[in-house]
Amino acid sequence: MKGPVETNPALEDDDAKLLAAYRRGDADALGRLVEKYKRPLFGFLSRFAANPGEADEWFQETWVRAIEHMNIFRQKNLPGWLFRIAHNLVIDAARRRKPDCSLDAPLPESGEPLADRIPAAALSPADEAAGRDLGRHIEAAAALLPVEQREVFWLRMDAGLPFKEIARIQRCSINTALARMQYALEKLRATLAPAYRELQETGP
């Protein structure tokens, strides 16, 4: 897991001070806030965007909505608020696009689950030859999870959010968020079994 998003009170105070400074006209304060959360927020958005341009557009939209609506609500947790808006953008985009391609969906030609084909289909021959790149296998396989499971997986594993916060963002119970994570891991384990075996056979 990389760069967990901290939500402790001290950081919230820091965010509040930067927001207040921005409202007083200190443009640098907004820059510092954007810088502070750019890695987890942009990282999350880029996992769902069709291309870097769309991720950039969503990133700006998230911040604009967050700042413009900050006064209306009782927001105490800036990263939680940012990710909630980001979640809405991701879900809206998923609804506009074709239905998600699921790992469980049978392939039209053979009827076998798509998950059975992932390692060969999702990685280039060069990647396959390089082998042992578990991280790339995970990214490729996670891209085919249903959007709710994919969200939980990346919010937890990459953005480092706790399940309590993920449940708030997805407006579900913490048990549902946990179950979505478990479904995601189960599918990833099945998909990644060949990569794991290779890793265990040739690893240190």
């Binding site: 990389k2 954007v34 810088e35 942009f42 700006q60 700042i67 995970i138 990459d158």
Partner: peptide, 24 residues
Amino acid sequence: ISAAIPAPAARPAPDAAARIAARL
């Protein structure tokens, strides 16, 4: 699995903060 997750390669545009401020 947690340790193997790579950091996303993509980064926001360098002028992202300036463009957000302009839009606001």
